[in-house]
Write a protein that binds this DNA or RNA. Structure first.
Lengths: 341, 341
DNA sequence: TTGTATGCGTTATCAA
DNA sequence: TTGATAACGCATACAA
């Protein structure tokens, strides 16, 4: 029913191959013919059939997105919409669609990814997480399938294109900031320990502590999920300590928010009784009471760059792995207090 | 390079058509052959080629998403990630991918939609908005292309499948709630006037006012964009009135948040000096100070249902247009005050 | 500069 | 119950 290349050919008195060449703007076609054919295409409202093109070109113009975990939960975190927004922005300019692969368990996600890759549903994949010993990463690596990691790879950094912040440095910076404010009992609240981002941030945290001549207190370091609920847990653990921290480096705004709520209920005030710095600088950070001092890791740009790298890789498979570091900014608001000497 | 149906056929000693039938689980193939072929498929790690299937089946297993406006801005509003989450959830279970069409201007969005439909890139479309005299809607209607509206159609409701809340009723309810609390000077802050949701809510608002025997004050009704910035504008207009409202029905949590911030700077307190109810019940509503009384319109479900309707329509094109009304709940928090008699 | 023939990987029609 | 063949709509190697 829809107009095909044949219809155009017939009306324009040429063969389908000529029309095909006009579409591709093949230089070996005369200007005259091109014009005529284009006129007919316009007239008939012809649009190249995407499916047929995909088949012959072996390209789907689609990017697969692999989320870390049950999308259901994880999508609640504004981090993901925001990376996706960045990805979507660049993808759209390059006429790429997005294929979001989800799943409840790690196994489901792996299977889903394998399937979407093997069936040729996508031209490349962006992993929206980076964790230790990840099956998906290994699969992609083995298949030599184009992919980009948002975050830093656990293994084979030299083989993988990835887009990341300097998370160690950022955490070093905020920890040092606390130290300059006079804090000595500083806690660290990380996310899942298998995530590289958690490892990196903890490393930065510890190096700042050590460099300042303070000692690292194991009990000041806790790990929770990157969610509001995580905040509850974390704060309970930390405040039950005999000598609780006076300042907290928290890996996620949402967690920080959860913590503040819990603290509120306990009658502990931020920043008067305890100072907090978190990561991501979500809209929430600005809206919270008190407004959170937060590290803006430029989530949007993380997404945008990863899409750029992936499409580059898809179009030129032979270029060596690339690595992009997205800058961060510490946005100072009102959740930190200087300790009197 | 990848395994095709032919490879499987050769190894299994059958023809490609037999393999194809096994994939489709065609009942006319003997159990024995099926088992053998499946074994070989397993062994070779065969996955049907998605592109080839698409071509011959005339289906892409992809849903097109059309956003209202510059996605850039609009994606900042958690409403969209949340509908998409719902859509994505259902789509994934049915093995559908998402194709997000974006654009800066209305014209760009229209062109993008036309292209993705004409080129056969998607099997159906979900419109994430509903406005007056929308070219995209008309185009889809004319082409008789499967689509679902999130919101209520302006024209031809009998021809269109749509998923919506009863926005008039919801607004009627919250307005009546204010009236019961003793408020008489109630303002309404809507979004873009071309959006049906704005019209519906205003209608519900006015009918509650009228029914209570109060008079509708034109100057209490303002329209802004559904963004944080909109809040600033709106509050400026309303508070400059000689006799400003004591309560506000606001079409979006984000706007309400913007307003509260502005009010804060002006030294006006919520709810002591002015009461606010907004819509969407985003995470923000709970996190805000004061926590916002908000209408939970079940955004996720809005998305989920729209995907369900669309896929149903794609698979059975001849069923008549459907209409789903998603329930709402008023979540009472601390942004409303009762007026002493 | 353009046309002819073939193939992309699958499904479907028609025979056998 | 299975096989041979055409077709989906387009792109390209080879001819002309």
């Amino acid at each position: 029913m829809p107009i095909t290349i044949k219809d155009v050919a017939r009306v324009a008195n040429v063969t389908p191959s000529t029309v095909s060449r006009v579409i591709a703007d093949n230089p070996r076609i005369s200007q005259k013919t091109k014009e005529k054919v284009r006129e007919v295409m316009q007239e008939l409202g012809y649009q190249p059939n995407f499916k047929a093109r995909s088949l012959v070109n072996r390209s789907t113009q689609t990017i697969g997105l692999v989320m870390p975990n049950s999308t259901d939960k994880v999508f609640q975190n504004p981090f993901f919409p925001e990376v996706i927004r960045g990805i979507s922005k660049f993808a759209h300019t390059m006429e790429y669609a997005l294929h979001i692969s989800t799943g409840e368990t790690e196994e489901e996600i792996y299977d889903g990814t394998v399937k979407m890759v093997q069936s040729g549903r996508v031209d490349g994949v962006i992993l929206l997480y980076s964790r230790k010993n990840d099956k998906v990463t290994n699969f992609l690596l083995e298949k030599d399938f184009p992919f980009v990691l948002v975050g830093k790879p656990y293994d084979h950094p030299e083989l993988i294109t990835y887009v990341d912040n300097d998370n160690a440095k950022a955490t070093y910076d905020v920890t040092s900031y606390f130290i300059r404010l006079g804090h000595e009992r500083i806690g660290f609240v990380g996310g899942n320990r298998d995530l590289i981002v958690t490892v990196d941030r903890q490393r930065g945290f510890e190096s700042a502590i050590r460099e300042a001549g303070l000692t690292i207190q194991e009990e000041y370091i806790v790990y929770e999920e990157f969610m509001k609920e995580g905040g509850h847990q974390a704060i309970a653990e930390l405040l039950s300590l005999p000598n609780p921290p006076s300042a907290l480096v928290v890996s996620d705004d949402l967690m920080a928010l959860g913590m503040i709520h819990t603290l509120d209920e306990m009658g502990v005030r931020v920043p008067e009784d305890i100072s907090i710095i978190s990561f991501n600088n979500l809209l929430l950070a600005e809206m919270s009471r008190p407004p959170l001092t937060s590290v803006d890791i430029n989530i949007y740009q993380l997404g945008y760059e990863s899409a750029r790298c992936l499409i580059e890789k898809i179009q030129q498979p032979d270029i060596p792995p690339n690595r992009v570091t997205v800058p961060y900014n510490i946005i100072k608001r009102s959740s930190c207090k200087a300790l009197k000497g």
